[in-house]
Amino acid sequence: MNYFNTLLLITDHAQGRVLDFGGGIGTHTLGTAMYPQVEQVVYCDINPINRDLVKYRAEQLGLSEKIVFCQELPDKETFDTIIFISFDVLEHLPDPSQQLLKFHQALKDEGKIIMNWCFFKSYNQEHPFHLDDPDLVEVFYRTLQSQFLEIFHPHQITARCYRKLV
């Protein structure tokens, strides 16, 4: 149910040129590329195996013309929507608030960002590589609150949608 509701959130808000940052196996990229209100999806992932898999899946689904592949966030490009829903990305970055600022810069003024995160190593340290330093997490939340405004949605999921504060 959680995955289905995440796709509903994307359906509700994704449009125009979309960046899927840390796209993993590409499920959100492929689903988003199928929406008529989406012109192009830029799939960004550092893992070459993931990129090859998503390219293959895109070819099989006839979506190759609508998806662009990259390894790093493209410089000076702007997006109508940014999707950052893959777990185990933001919480591994040394300074997640800096990534938020990069997203803010890349997002068009009327754009929306859909994202989630989990700054928690778990009670028994099941996620030892997750960032959970209280000071860095507080800076992240302060940055989020100063740059974005959450958009209400009725879906029962951990992902959230924000619009850019201008």
Rank of each mutant, 00 (worst) to 15 (best):
147 Q>A: 11
40 Q>W: 03
107 L>V: 04
144 L>T: 00
90 L>Q: 08
64 S>V: 11
137 V>C: 08
104 H>P: 01
113 I>D: 01
31 G>A: 14
155 H>E: 15
44 C>F: 00
2 N>W: 06
72 E>F: 09
53 L>H: 08
144 L>R: 02
33 A>N: 14
33 A>P: 10
115 M>G: 07
33 A>W: 11
24 G>F: 05
83 I>F: 01
6 T>A: 10
144 L>A: 02
125 Q>I: 01
67 I>Y: 13
27 T>D: 08
40 Q>T: 13
88 D>K: 02
103 F>W: 02
125 Q>L: 15
142 R>Y: 00
62 G>M: 15
70 C>E: 11
150 E>M: 14
159 A>I: 08
106 A>N: 06
138 E>M: 06
106 A>M: 03
14 A>C: 07
61 L>N: 12
18 V>D: 10
28 H>D: 15
33 A>R: 12
57 R>E: 13
39 E>Q: 14
11 T>D: 13
16 G>E: 07
92 H>Q: 04
100 L>G: 00
52 D>Y: 02
139 V>W: 01
128 P>D: 07
32 T>G: 05
10 I>H: 02
115 M>V: 06
132 D>K: 08
95 D>N: 11
47 N>E: 14
154 P>F: 10
122 S>P: 02
69 F>P: 15
56 Y>E: 13
124 N>S: 14
67 I>A: 07
144 L>M: 07
134 P>G: 06
128 P>I: 07
110 E>P: 03
13 H>K: 04
151 I>F: 05
73 L>V: 09
58 A>I: 09
130 H>N: 11
125 Q>A: 04
145 Q>T: 05
125 Q>F: 09
34 M>N: 11
160 R>I: 05
51 R>K: 13
102 K>N: 08
98 Q>E: 15
157 I>N: 14
133 D>I: 03
146 S>F: 00
140 F>C: 03
94 P>N: 08
130 H>V: 08
154 P>W: 09
17 R>Y: 03
107 L>P: 04
22 G>S: 13
25 I>C: 14
107 L>N: 01
155 H>N: 08
129 F>K: 12
97 S>L: 02
26 G>H: 04
35 Y>D: 09
165 L>N: 10
56 Y>H: 10
143 T>H: 00
10 I>T: 07
3 Y>C: 02
94 P>G: 06
141 Y>L: 03
146 S>Y: 00
